[in-house]
Computed example of a mutant assay.
Amino acid sequence: MNGPTVGVEEEFLLLDPRTGENVPAAPSVAGKLPEELRGQSRREFRHSMVEMVTPVCGSLGEVAESLRRMRQAAAEAAAAAGASLVALGATPVGEPRLLVTDDPRYEAIAGHYGPIVGDPAVCGCHVHVGVPDRETAIEVCNHLRPWLPVVQAMTVNSPFFGGVDTGHASWRAMQLDRWPSLGPTPYFASAADLDRTVRLLVDAGVMLDETLVLWHARPSLRYPTVEVRVADVCPSVADTVLLTALVRALVGTALDDIRAGRRALPVPDPVLKAAHWNAAHSGLSGKLLDPSRERARPAWELVDELFRTVTPALDRHGDLDTAYDLLACLRTVGTGTDRLRRELERTGDLPATLADAARRTVTG
């Protein structure tokens, strides 16, 4: 193992194969998973969602193999339950039966936040990377802030809502913007600074408890890891592997900067929020706001700059060749949103487009 350990969480929608509507089949799907994979499945907020979690991995090869096994098994379990497993960031048509998982915590969240909880299901991909300790995790999150809008733009995969194209590359991001404790990670001086802020937010009722810190990057409450949770669920295993490689390399680069005494750039929160909105709206089509230089630049120019910045870490981790090839593929085929829009233009039929997305969820 040449780099920090990684783990990946992927959330998937369960859709009606005919209509594209959400299907509340998660309990049935969980019961139909192979016994050896049931421990890698998590109960999600919605009955129309399935979450699968890799073990702690040391290499991209381990990540890819685990993702393939989990997606294949979850897709077969979904089919047996009469649904399609689809890697899509937001509900594309609708959720006729809005069921919240029977769990005291979820019920408390539903009671506290009211109609926001009525928004249909959204699905993300979360990458966890090992760091030495919690104080270091805070510093790493500070260093990640300017780059996460670029990561978000690369992983947009949810243009549809209500059966139509919203005009946004990530409707998931737009929908989640209604939650008060979700968004760009604030800049913190220390773990004590973060803890003080969280206590204030809990006291004010913005968060029910410290587990509802849902920022785009956050230190784990239980483990010495940083969790990056800005991405829509990726359309294929290859896309998730690229995301994992880049996030691990960004964390590795941040650790290099910390050891060298280089401080993170304190990007103003409004600038960072604008950069994330821009990324969710446009993806890699056109320009993105560069929060470091505070000006708009061609999206792929920023992607290339990110790749150059993390190349030493990718090389050190043994991930450079894989990441280079997968980035070239992304440049050719586009983001998940680009692919969905092309397929819808080709077929003129949203259910057919979603069926293609279900196939690609497993086959890539």
Score class of each variant (00 low, 15 high):
N142Y: 05
L272Q: 05
P4M: 05
F188C: 02
F161G: 04
P184H: 04
A153T: 01
S282Y: 07
A279W: 02
G82D: 12
V228S: 02
D304G: 14
T91A: 01
A231Y: 00
Q72F: 10
C329S: 13
V8P: 01
D338K: 07
W277Q: 03
G167M: 08
D103K: 08
R71H: 10
T240S: 15
S41V: 10
V127D: 06
L14S: 03
P180I: 04
L14A: 04
V271H: 09
S236D: 12
A137R: 00
E343S: 05
K273C: 03
G118W: 11
A73H: 09
A355L: 09
H168L: 11
L15F: 01
S59W: 03
T332K: 14
D304V: 01
L243M: 10
A64F: 09
G20C: 05
P224M: 06
P224N: 12
A204V: 00
R331K: 15
T91H: 03
W147G: 02
G261D: 03
I116W: 09
T353I: 10
A313G: 00
L265Y: 11
A204K: 14
P298T: 11
H168Y: 10
D256N: 10
T166S: 15
V86E: 07
Q152H: 15
V202K: 02
R218G: 07
R43I: 15
I258Y: 04
T353M: 10
N22E: 14
W171M: 01
G183A: 08
L85S: 00
P149Q: 09
T166W: 07
T361S: 07
G162T: 11
A81N: 08
G334D: 02
S48G: 14
L306T: 08
L320F: 13
S41L: 11
A110G: 09
V6L: 12
R308D: 14
L67F: 08
M52E: 01
V122T: 09
R222C: 13
G205M: 10
S220H: 13
V202G: 00
L242T: 04
L302K: 08
A153Q: 05
P219C: 09
V230C: 12
